[in-house]
């Protein structure tokens, strides 16, 4: 489940007022989250939670829900 903190980090990075983000939402359907901006969103999430992802971990994520789960798993480590 997408947390408010996680969602707000994404919205702030993409300079969006609001956007409905669900577990199944694909990154490329969020306005501004294109291939060039992708890495900026990842870095913003890493900074927000003080975590560091491995490249392969992010590349395996199929949707935003997977990214949230990845953050959760890193925090709980």
């Amino acid at each position: 489940m997408i947390s408010e903190r996680f969602k707000n980090t994404i919205l702030k990075q993409l300079e969006l007022d609001d956007f409905d983000i669900q577990d199944e939402t694909k990154a490329n359907t969020v306005p501004g989250w294109d291939s060039l901006n992708h890495v900026n969103v990842i870095v913003a999430i890493e900074k927000e939670y003080g975590v560091k992802f491995k490249g392969i971990e992010v590349l395996k994520c199929k949707n935003i829900g997977d990214l949230q789960k990845l953050v959760d798993s890193k925090i709980n480590q």
């Binding site: 060039l36 890495v39 900026n40 990842i42 490249g55």
Partner: peptide, 24 residues
């Protein structure tokens, strides 16, 4: 995009936009 640029971009993300430019 999927098999070359994105992995490169992830690896170079410490360089910010310059890393993305280099990956491009």
């Amino acid at each position: 995009l999927d098999y070359l640029f994105t992995p490169l971009q992830m690896g170079l993300r410490g360089l910010g936009n310059y890393g993305t430019a280099l990956a491009i």
